[in-house]
Amino acid sequence: MATPVLDKVEAEAKAAAYITVTFRVRRFNPEVSAESTWEDFQLEIDPKERVLDGLHKIKWDLDGTLTFRRSCAHGICGSDAMRINGKNRLACKTLIKDINPEKPITIEPIKGLTVLKDLVVDMEPFFQAYRDVMPFLITKDTNEPTRERLQSAEDRERFDDTTKCILCAACTSSCPVFWNDGQYFGPAAIVNAHRFIFDSRDQAGEQRLEILNDKDGVWRCRTTFNCTDACPRGIEVTKAIQEVKRALITRRF
């Protein structure tokens, strides 16, 4: 803390920077109504704050019943993916000034998963798809963890992009195929399979490719690039899916 004089100056500067923002939140509470409705909240907030700060402000000061997930609040736990102004983003990585605060900011739960309350969805089908691609290291000859498994920098670089996934479901719930057919693996599961398929230390790549060669596997991808646009980690999701497709084709011919 600085001197009281400086504090006052800071406080004045802060107050001057505040703007009024409307948060238009899609609300659903099965204990009250079967219908989901839009609710508007007026906030006095610094435009350099994040959408998550706005949601906190609502929950803490205006309406404690607003329900949403968040954990680390710094873009790494992947809890607070939501549809902000019609685009899947992390509330904790989206600054209010970047999404046109003059107009109401719409906030909805991510699509394609069952909404349980307000912004909370049932993530179980999403994680089931993740589990189905066996997202763990599998080795056949040297199971004993006796020493480090070494890898060259180039081999590590091969799958570097897909190691960034935080399982926030922004990609999968932006995929139009997944919206209509939850049986599709979805981009996130394929990204996490890609991470192991192209890992030189892993030996079950063939098995994972076979899983993704399924009726509901990579061939259902329509390359709409929604997943790449949605990914808050900047993973080239569609490219990863295409690489899995290419691996499947070159494996056969």
């Binding site: 079967a34 049932d122 509901d216």
Partner: peptide, 21 residues
């Protein structure tokens, strides 16, 4: 609807489960 008698949630179409696909 109340706490003991909540409204039905709207299930996503063709959800993945342990057994499907």
């Amino acid at each position: 609807y109340d706490v003991d008698n909540p409204a039905p949630v709207i299930e996503a179409p063709r959800q993945r489960t342990k057994k499907t696909p």
